Amino acid sequence: MLKSREELDADLDTAARAWLDEALTEAAHDAAARDAARTDAARAEAAQAARTDAVRAAPHAPLAEAGPVTTPSAATGSPHTSAPWELRYAAAGRHCGQAHADSVRSLLLIEARAPLPSVTRLYEQGTAAERRAVLLTLDRLDLGDTALPLVEDALRTNDTRLVAAAVGPYAAAHLDPHAWRHAVLKCLFTGVPVGSVARLGERARGDGELARMLRDFAAERTAAGRDVPAGLDTALALTEPAR
């Protein structure tokens, strides 16, 4: 379970708390810089639109002297530019301990209001532990369904840590029914407890197709002389229509 900042402060030693303070400050600064860049870009666009409208309205009238309209060149959020806090993300375990690394990395993502390029970069370039922290935090970021490729990638692996993290609240909110059903089966196939699947009861209720897939999976296992995963009956019972 991810810990809050207050819980981390109670658990970390002085040096680790100081490191976390600096890391979160850098993340917040990056978020503020992106906000400022967006504001500047919007103003530049509005100014350019106003000048264009003025020319169309009076094509022969002299325009007042004005400086050039420029678009901000800040690369924050660029697919190719790493913000300083992203380096802290990788170092979280070393400075705050592996037991707290998920929580520290999650706080960094949240404080930075991490954009999709950063989230994708940290996932694709990260270790399994760093990828897990991304997956655990997706539902706390304002990304809509744009980060689904990361969930889909995790569900293609057989790493139970990634599979369990991938079927959290973000997947429950954004995976389409077909992909979500296969995610449930992936948990059963890899031994991830079905209790890891967020909103399982809500999404499974009355899902006849999921029920069919679960029965087929159980039949295949039985025919092959293999045990049926314990969670399968639990998931199958949840597919019963509401009364």
Rank of each mutant, 00 (worst) to 15 (best):
L8A: 07
L12E: 00
D13L: 03
A16Q: 01
A18C: 04
L20T: 01
L20G: 01
D21K: 07
E22L: 11
A23D: 00
L24F: 01
E26R: 11
A27D: 02
H29A: 11
H29P: 00
D30Y: 06
A31K: 07
D35L: 14
T39R: 15
A41L: 15
A41W: 14
A42M: 12
R43M: 15
A44Y: 08
A47Q: 12
A47N: 09
R51C: 00
R51S: 02
D53N: 05
A54R: 10
R56K: 13
R56W: 10
A58C: 04
H60Q: 13
A61E: 12
A61C: 10
L63Y: 06
A66D: 10
T70A: 14
P72C: 08
A74E: 12
A74W: 11
A75T: 13
T76M: 09
G77N: 05
T81L: 11
A83P: 02
P84T: 04
L87T: 10
A90S: 15
A90I: 13
H95I: 03
A99I: 09
H100I: 01
A101N: 00
D102H: 07
V104H: 00
L107M: 06
L109G: 01
L109N: 01
I110H: 02
E111R: 13
A112E: 02
R113T: 10
R113K: 15
P115G: 06
P115N: 08
L116S: 01
L122K: 05
L122G: 03
E124D: 14
A128K: 03
A129S: 10
V134C: 12
L138G: 03
L138F: 10
D139M: 03
D142Q: 15
D145P: 09
L148N: 11
L148K: 11
L148R: 14
P149S: 09
L150Q: 09
V151W: 02
E152G: 04
R156Y: 10
R156C: 12
N158C: 13
N158R: 15
D159R: 14
A164Q: 06
V167C: 07
V167R: 04
Y170I: 12
A171I: 09
A172E: 07
A172C: 10
A173G: 05
D176H: 12
D176A: 14
H178Q: 13
C187K: 04
L188H: 07
L188G: 05
F189Y: 14
F189C: 08
G191Y: 07
G191L: 08
G191N: 06
V192F: 08
V194S: 02
V194P: 00
G195C: 08
V197R: 00
R199F: 07
R199E: 12
G201E: 12
G208D: 12
R212C: 08
R212D: 13
R212S: 11
R212G: 06
T222R: 15
A224S: 09
G225W: 10
V228A: 03
G231H: 03
G231T: 03
G231N: 03
L232K: 03
A237I: 11
A237C: 13
T239P: 02
T239H: 03
A242Y: 12
